[in-house]
């Protein structure tokens, strides 16, 4: 198992946002977490990345309990994150942003990975020396995505990667996810855009008021009457 959450509870101070979460992602699998805006999706992602340590339960990565690891240690285990709102470094060039992604392993095979990123998004190559803060939203999302890939993750966490992007960019992001998957990297995807999330993921969990209320394969979820009514508007 790539990652395993057992009875995870977390939130801000005394305010519990997510409660009793059990969740699995297998090697090379793409799993979607669905839910409305306040369901606790981002809190869940932050608990896994370590940005907001959870309060109860266990998170195991490749069988090892990483619950007490600070976020900067989790990346070396093979966990990388495309955070909500992109969080690129605005006053660093595109290349420097990508290099920070490779910080935990420093110099090894940097050029090779940069070349791979530029092959995936040729637009970034044109703008490699440009300050990332001056890029368009879609380009910043590419930077955020490639930065995470530079960490050479085994599991990629993506929090609303298509949020605020033009439909054409959403397509590009999702084809990038497929590309990641074809390289055997597992993806845990948080999306508000449920129909497109169910197209790229093989399984999904529905999060409601901080609890998992439904889980199943993408096909099962897409056919579920509750999901249809609540998220797909059918």
């Amino acid at each position: 198992m790539m990652i395993e959450l057992e009875n995870v509870t977390g939130g801000y101070g005394h305010r519990t946002i997510i409660e009793g979460i059990d969740l699995l992602v297998a090697e090379g699998e793409t799993v979607a977490i669905l839910g409305v805006n306040t369901a606790g999706k981002t809190t869940l992602i932050r608990a896994i990345s370590g940005a907001l340590p959870h309060q109860k339960g266990h998170i195991r990565f490749e069988g090892r309990d990483i619950s007490d690891d600070p976020p900067h240690a989790r990346v070396s285990s093979g966990l990388a994150c495309v955070p909500e709102g992109r969080h690129i470094f605005p006053q660093m060039s595109v290349v420097e942003n990508l290099m920070v992604g490779a910080y935990h392993r420093r110099s090894s095979a940097l050029d090779e990975d940069l070349e791979a990123a530029f092959t995936l998004f040729p637009r970034l190559k044109e703008r490699r020396r440009q300050m990332a803060g001056t890029l368009s939203g879609g380009e910043q999302q590419m930077v955020s995505f490639c930065r995470a890939m530079m960490a050479r993750p085994k599991l990629l966490l993506m929090d609303e990667p298509s949020h605020g992007l033009a439909p054409m960019m959403v397509e590009e992001v999702h084809s990038a996810i497929n590309d990641v998957n074809s390289r055997g990297i597992a993806v845990l995807l948080v999306e508000q855009n449920v129909s497109s999330a169910l197209r790229v993921a093989s399984r999904g969990y529905v999060l409601d008021h901080g609890r998992i209320t439904l889980e199943g394969t993408a096909g099962e979820l897409a056919d579920d009457p509750f999901v249809k009514k609540t998220y797909l508007g059918i």
């Binding site: 990388a80 470094f89 605005p90 006053q91």
Partner: peptide, 23 residues
Amino acid sequence: WLGRAIRATAQDAPAAQLFGINT
């Protein structure tokens, strides 16, 4: 690398942490 880590921390410490920088 140290300099990049310092600038990344200055610009967005939570994001820097996500990429292995002990802020």
